[in-house]
Amino acid sequence: MVLRPPQQLQPSQVTNPLDVEILAEKAASLGHAGEKVEKALARLRAFEGTPEERRALLKDAAECVYAYFIQRELCGLRRHHEVIREYGIPNEVLVRLGAK
């Protein structure tokens, strides 16, 4: 079985310095969005307070996850099942995205 990188990362297509810079910016932005998801989910998991305050944390987590999914799609990554499992994104957050 032969493995090859995604077509957008083929060496012949990444020889332009501008393309390299764009790919680097996409990767950095995706990493930043992922960090925001991790922090929002950690705050949600650690929270012990009123239901109103929890709703605000759920809204923030849903916004962070939504932004992360959009950034992934801009990078050509269309399937989110793996990251939902990896980050442990709860259904109550996904419901706010319309994903479940």
Rank of each mutant, 00 (worst) to 15 (best):
V2E: 02
V2S: 05
L3M: 09
R4I: 15
R4G: 11
P5K: 15
P6D: 02
Q8S: 15
Q8V: 15
Q8D: 13
Q10G: 13
P11K: 06
P11W: 03
Q13W: 10
V14A: 13
V14Q: 11
L18M: 14
D19T: 14
D19F: 10
V20G: 06
I22R: 12
I22K: 07
L23M: 13
L23D: 14
L23Y: 09
A24N: 11
A24D: 15
E25M: 05
K26W: 04
A27R: 08
A28M: 08
A28H: 10
S29Y: 02
G31K: 04
H32Q: 11
H32Y: 12
A33G: 00
A33M: 02
A33Q: 01
A33Y: 00
G34Q: 00
E35W: 14
K36I: 06
K36T: 04
K36D: 01
V37E: 00
E38K: 14
A40P: 06
A40E: 02
A40T: 04
L41M: 02
R43V: 03
L44G: 04
E48L: 12
E48N: 13
G49Q: 05
T50Y: 05
E52R: 03
E52H: 04
E52W: 05
E52C: 04
E52T: 09
E53T: 05
R55L: 09
A56H: 06
A56N: 07
A56D: 13
A56T: 13
A56I: 15
L57F: 02
A61I: 00
A62I: 04
C64N: 08
C64F: 03
C64Q: 08
Y66A: 13
A67V: 06
I70S: 02
Q71A: 15
E73R: 11
C75K: 00
C75A: 10
C75V: 07
G76M: 06
R78K: 15
R78A: 10
R79P: 05
H80P: 09
H81I: 12
H81Y: 06
E82W: 02
V83L: 01
I84M: 05
E86D: 11
E86K: 09
Y87G: 10
I89E: 01
N91C: 06
E92C: 01
E92W: 00
L94K: 03
L94T: 05
V95L: 09
L97M: 08
L97R: 01
L97F: 09
G98Q: 07
G98L: 07
K100Q: 15
K100S: 14
